[in-house]
Simulated assay, not measured.
Amino acid sequence: MRNISDLIEQYLKHMLQESSDGAVELQRNDLAERFSCVPSQINYVISTRFTLEKGYFVESKRGGGGYIRIQRVELPSLTALQGHIVHTIGDQVDQGAAEGLIYQLEEAEFITRREANLLRAAISRDSIAVKLPLRDEIRARLLRAMLITLLIK
């Protein structure tokens, strides 16, 4: 059985798919009431699963008429994607940012689930068992080379 965070994430993703402009505005308290949870649970889901690295822009306004706005950030076209990858990864990339980019590419269906799993395994800190900052440099080189190769198809 899935946990409440998974259910909230799936609900929000469904809302984003149904949205004509790729964005949703919601009241945190209304969403918490819908899922019978505390508002901080909603904050947790949004702050961990709807990050910029994962392809989402989140804006919030506090107060009586406050809201949370989640917008899907579209990846550039395939021809511009290589430049985006080189720019995003840079000379060093930590594991969290690398996994966020892989997630974003998988969600946009530029890579398959299997390819994403292989990438995650190759760039994990367990696979690159050297000390920082060398590990982040190696991860960046590996990830950049693998993604460019995968996306040239």
Rank of each mutant, 00 (worst) to 15 (best):
83 G>Q: 15
60 S>H: 15
6 D>E: 08
72 R>H: 08
46 I>V: 10
50 F>Y: 05
103 Y>N: 15
52 L>E: 13
89 I>V: 09
104 Q>E: 14
133 P>Q: 05
130 V>T: 10
77 S>T: 08
143 L>P: 11
122 A>Y: 14
4 I>R: 15
26 L>Q: 13
89 I>K: 01
24 V>I: 05
131 K>Y: 06
62 R>C: 02
3 N>F: 11
133 P>K: 02
142 L>A: 08
115 E>A: 04
42 I>C: 04
124 S>D: 00
92 Q>L: 08
105 L>D: 08
24 V>P: 00
107 E>P: 09
72 R>E: 09
60 S>Y: 08
70 I>N: 14
126 D>W: 12
13 K>T: 09
39 P>R: 01
30 D>T: 12
140 A>P: 00
49 R>C: 06
15 M>H: 10
1 M>H: 12
59 E>N: 05
35 F>E: 00
46 I>G: 13
76 P>Q: 13
15 M>W: 05
143 L>T: 01
138 I>F: 00
98 A>N: 09
121 A>L: 12
130 V>A: 01
112 T>M: 08
24 V>F: 06
61 K>A: 10
60 S>W: 09
69 R>V: 03
2 R>N: 13
131 K>I: 13
19 S>A: 05
87 H>A: 11
150 L>C: 07
20 S>E: 09
125 R>P: 12
71 Q>N: 10
75 L>Q: 07
140 A>W: 00
41 Q>A: 15
57 F>K: 06
4 I>P: 11
75 L>F: 11
10 Q>H: 08
54 K>W: 12
145 A>E: 02
93 V>P: 00
27 Q>S: 08
103 Y>L: 10
65 G>C: 11
66 G>Y: 13
152 I>Y: 10
41 Q>C: 07
55 G>H: 01
51 T>D: 01
39 P>A: 03
28 R>I: 07
14 H>I: 03
51 T>N: 03
27 Q>F: 06
117 N>Q: 14
111 I>L: 02
90 G>P: 01
78 L>I: 07
37 C>G: 03
132 L>N: 15
122 A>V: 05
129 A>C: 04
72 R>W: 01
121 A>D: 02
19 S>I: 00
121 A>V: 05
143 L>S: 03
128 I>M: 00
32 A>E: 06
94 D>L: 00
58 V>L: 09
148 I>Y: 06
48 T>I: 04
106 E>R: 01
96 G>H: 12
59 E>H: 12
37 C>H: 02
77 S>E: 15
21 D>S: 14
26 L>H: 05
14 H>R: 11
9 E>N: 08
133 P>A: 03
35 F>M: 03
135 R>N: 04
28 R>P: 07
97 A>Y: 05
133 P>E: 01
123 I>C: 02
91 D>I: 13
30 D>K: 03
103 Y>Q: 06
54 K>I: 14
132 L>W: 13
11 Y>G: 00
34 R>I: 07
27 Q>W: 04
25 E>L: 09
133 P>W: 11
150 L>G: 04
109 E>P: 04
130 V>H: 05
8 I>Y: 08
15 M>T: 05
12 L>T: 02
102 I>P: 10
137 E>R: 04
11 Y>S: 02
98 A>K: 03
87 H>N: 09
